[in-house]
Design a protein around this nucleic acid. Structure first.
Lengths: 146, 146
DNA sequence: CCCGAATAATTTCAATACGAATTATTTCCA
DNA sequence: TGGAAATAATTCGTATTGAAATTATTCGGG
């Protein structure tokens, strides 16, 4: 692992840690954990999704999401219901309380929202576009899909 | 969380997952976990480091690193010794076996090494430089240090 | 139509991961 | 210098994480 490779690794890791720290902050404000908030947000954007599809969307294992959903159901934020089309599957949706929670977390007081806006103020659209393109390219090569 | 912000979040998360998957693969080949390999690698690059400094370098909590070091000591890959300068601190170093393990993990057979090289073959030095610069800029803004 | 392969979810287990509390030691300043 | 504040590490509790095994169901080819 020579210089450049190491730089790339550390850069990716640092950006991710910074991002998760913000999500954790917003999540803590409404009394949940970061992964729970990410799951709620995903469900807000796409209701009635199957557990497997949710796990795929989030790049998490089924077992992981299954446990997280357990806790969200216990907290009254999410409901599980068996799929009518496929009796193996379960369909997930937000409860009213779940909706309120995610909206409160990412609402006016959200640190993450403020910082993401700041990025758009301080970095030009061309550079952001460039950033996303390179990020995607690096990811594709890392996955061996080039 | 509108379009661009979400794109940035997902891009960062995806790159990190791809990276960690590779590290996990190399680590599994030598019979350890990804975090354990990252710790061993860090110790290879900087021997005789204090636990607190190691945790800081890796952006991990002290308690987390303490537990990971426990397992590495049990496996005979790392040794703990009390610092002479500061009796509160412990100094960490690799054993001979620890050195061999990390060198084997990131040696010729390393998938991560191969993919990082591939990045340098497929992406121009200017673009890599640009990538690292933007990555750093985004991280700084996310941390609120702009 | 039927049975083996594939798929969806859960459970279990070991390893992260972090915050809070605790213990031991050092620092620093009144 | 004496003691409060800060620092280093560990322990504890809870919540991720993913691989592997398990169960239930669906799919697909003969």
């Amino acid at each position: 692992m020579e210089g450049i490779g190491r730089d790339i690794m550390y850069a990716i890791a640092r950006a991710q840690k910074a991002l998760y720290r913000l999500i954790r902050e917003d999540a803590a404000r409404v009394g949940i954990t970061e992964v729970q908030l990410i799951v709620l947000y995903t469900l807000l954007k796409k209701e009635h999704i199957r557990l497997h599809d949710l796990a795929e969307k989030l790049n998490l294992s089924n077992s992981n999401v299954s446990g997280t959903v357990d806790r969200l159901v216990s907290a009254g934020l999410v409901v599980r219901e068996p799929s009518k089309r496929d009796r193996r599957a379960v369909i997930l949706s937000l409860t009213e309380k779940g909706k309120e929670t995610v909206l409160a977390a990412f609402g006016e007081q959200s640190v993450l929202r403020r910082r993401l806006q700041r990025i758009q103020e301080l970095i030009s659209p061309e550079e952001i576009e460039q950033f996303l393109r390179l990020q995607e390219k690096v990811k594709t090569i890392l996955l061996g899909e080039e």
